[in-house]
Design a protein around this nucleic acid. Structure first.
Length: 200
DNA sequence: CTTTGGATCGTCT
DNA sequence: GACGATCCAAAGG
């Protein structure tokens, strides 16, 4: 009995219990999970952990504000923020309620909806440049502030986080986070080694 | 190939 | 009023 090949971008939503640990615990487990936005989807190949009140680099370090409120809610929701006057970035909220931990999704391998992604990102000359950065992948998938707070684990959400059976790498790359000026000694960035779609 | 600086505006001090 | 959890084009080697 041969089962048919699973369509690209298909899978089951993660269980919320998989996201209740610290951001540093959860982040590397999200490698190879699939982020889906309508017909567009990609496999996560680079992430960063932000630990809320324990982490000077986190948006939640100085407490709850109108912008970061979603981070203080339940795990599995999407935290989208606007930065540098023009870019959106997407996080998966994790930890327990009130802890404001989150994992920034930094890069994807495009799986489906490539034509829509190319249309959304005319600056990308190669397909590997469609989603190889936190703001690029939001542009490619059409994620904006309007999506802030969505439940990524609900079957009817416009944006979902799926497990299609591909396990995380046994030994991911690990190093300092990108683009921050504090807590730079913490090695809380993880990526899939030898993967062309990783940023930088 | 690497380095540099401009774009652009919401958010918090 | 200052500063980004960034990207890209242009300039330089």
């Amino acid at each position: 009995m041969t089962s048919p090949a699973r369509p690209p971008g298909a899978g089951e939503p993660l269980h919320r219990g998989q996201l209740t640990g610290t951001a540093a615990d959860v982040a590397p487990t999200l490698l190879h999970k699939v982020l889906v936005a309508g017909e567009r989807s990609g496999r996560i190949v680079e992430v960063e952990a932000y630990e809320g009140g324990d982490d000077p680099a986190s948006h939640a370090f100085r407490g709850r504000t109108p912008r970061n409120g979603i981070m203080f809610g339940p795990a599995g929701h999407l935290y989208v923020y606007f930065t540098y006057g023009m870019h959106w970035c997407a996080n998966v909220v994790c930890g327990s309620r009130g802890e404001a931990r989150a994992v920034l999704v930094r890069a994807l391998v495009p799986l489906t909806g490539l034509e829509a992604m190319r249309g959304a990102r005319p600056a990308a000359t190669r397909d590997r440049d469609l989603c190889n950065g936190p703001a690029k992948l939001c542009q490619a998938l059409g994620i904006t502030g309007a999506d802030n707070g969505l439940d990524l684990l609900a079957g009817d959400s416009a944006i979902m986080l799926l497990d299609d059976g591909v396990p995380p790498p046994r030994t991911p790359g690990n190093g300092p986070r990108v683009g921050i000026s504090v807590a730079t000694e913490r090695r809380m960035r993880w990526w899939v080694e030898n993967e062309p779609c990783v940023s930088r």
